[in-house]
Design a protein around this nucleic acid. Sequence first.
DNA 1: ACAGTTTTTTGATCTTTATCAAAAAGTCCT
DNA 2: AGGACTTTTTGATAAAGATCAAAAAACTGT
Lengths: 236, 236
Amino acid sequence: MDFSELKSVCGGCTIRELCLPAGLTDQEVLLLDQHMSHRQPVKKGESLYRTGDAFKSLYAVSAGFFKTSILHEDGRTQVTGFQMAGEILGLDAISTDQHVCDAVALEDSVVCEVPFDRFEELGQLMNNLQRRFNRTLSREIVRDQGVMLLLGSMRSEERLAAFLVNLTHRFSARKQSSSELVLRMTREDIGSYLGLKLETVSRLLSRFHDEGLLSVRGRNIQILNPEGLNRLVGTA
Amino acid sequence: MDFSELKSVCGGCTIRELCLPAGLTDQEVLLLDQHMSHRQPVKKGESLYRTGDAFKSLYAVSAGFFKTSILHEDGRTQVTGFQMAGEILGLDAISTDQHVCDAVALEDSVVCEVPFDRFEELGQLMNNLQRRFNRTLSREIVRDQGVMLLLGSMRSEERLAAFLVNLTHRFSARKQSSSELVLRMTREDIGSYLGLKLETVSRLLSRFHDEGLLSVRGRNIQILNPEGLNRLVGTA
DNA sequence: ACAGTTTTTTGATCTTTATCAAAAAGTCCT
DNA sequence: AGGACTTTTTGATAAAGATCAAAAAACTGT
């Protein structure tokens, strides 16, 4: 392993401002970086961690795409989120010292491992880091409550539209095309996340296609009418 | 206001171990307490805060019962949780410095106000407090993901059973009767939380009643067959 | 205690989404 | 490139829960 490369991982990272180092000074980033970041590839289909695994580290997605899902006794699973570059995996495990969901790479990915006990120590020393981290945790709570709104109050069509709009926002924040989406997950994953069956997701995509909102070719989706899609969300 | 009573609020609080001071030493509790806790009554029906309000403080429920709900543009609302003694309100506001939900008292209640900037300073000084608080935030994330599972994967009957079982657990952790529930919220509130219409909630309660699982008299619910109720949860 | 309001229950019917099924398209592996 | 597997699409039908409606019950404030 190339040690010189391991240093200053965050410093040169293009998504630094979307990730844990957001809002830190260069000096602070260097400290965070040199003491903690450790890059690690995860192959498509592999689990980064599984339910029940001991919690040691948080993981920042450096590149790639993940899904997290929780398991019900009877075998049912619920996809709880899709994570892309800059987003943090493992926040839910802090509470119990065990992971309570599975994190699976949906494409070949790279994560930065952040050993949590050292991160907590650093937070104690670095006021700013701790304050930012509180916000990161709180942001995840807000995101989850948005999903509750989606699952509890929206109809299928609104859910899918909201999901697609959310993806476009996140892609464009990462300077990726927000009109040409390449979905990394199956229709079943989307359905699980949205509380729908995969057939319903497929039918809705076909309908959106027929209505000229977007063009679907398998997992390649081109948004043709973003305003129209937006209008579907939040219209009772 | 009686100043001598304001000191050591937490110290003598019966739910101390369910609240922010959980796991702190007596000395640490005293510090937390004297610098921060400020008790405050909230009448039934009143809002503790509303969406858009500036975020100043967290609130620990000392006594009573709250609901939180988020608002959709078009007037729809989604109840995101019910909070009882020891639970913390306002965690979602840390991320944006604005409250993103409404918190309404469902009965005459008392909260302890915790000014957040001072709390963050104290966390910086008190290692243990900060670590506990990270866990509090993470626990809320886990709770929210449990609600996602409920809304995304369970049928109406399972949702209501899970809701009732959850209430009994939380009541019994507070040494209150877990077989005689007095619901503080309307059927509509329950429905909103569970992603169901109020009529569906009412019908399900009637059915559970007919099946001998519980006895319903308005908002008074007596659990007659807790195992049966448990069996409904997590049975596909 | 009473009038007015809100909440709850129950019935009849309708809509949305799930389920079952089968073919088409896409992906993976060697 | 070809065969095996997985994923996606589409159709027909079923079921769960929503909607509409109206009466009964429970609260509220005076």
